[in-house]
């Protein structure tokens, strides 16, 4: 039996732990209110998409700077 790749452990156990904690508590902690929790999750997902998209935009920005005709 071999161990899974180290990165798998780091990702699932360490990096994503705050996500588990937060999402579980939002959904199941008292008072329960799936509407508000759902809105929170939608906000969080939208912010995540925005962050990744802006990283991509950063790359495009640097590509433009690099190809400026100076």
């Amino acid at each position: 039996m071999s161990l899974p790749p180290i990165g798998m452990v780091v990702l699932l156990v360490i990096l994503l732990m705050p996500v588990y904690v937060t999402l579980a508590a939002w959904l199941f902690a008292e008072p329960r209110d799936f509407r508000t929790a759902g809105i929170g999750i939608v906000y969080m997902a939208a912010i995540a998409v925005a962050m990744i998209a802006s990283t991509a935009a950063l790359g495009v920005g640097f590509w433009l700077i690099g190809s400026l005709p100076f």
Binding site: A25, W26, A29, E30, T36
Partner: peptide
């Protein structure tokens, strides 16, 4: 409640 638990997440 969500703010509190997100605090724990942080």
């Amino acid at each position: 409640s969500m703010r509190k638990w997100l605090g724990l997440g942080l």
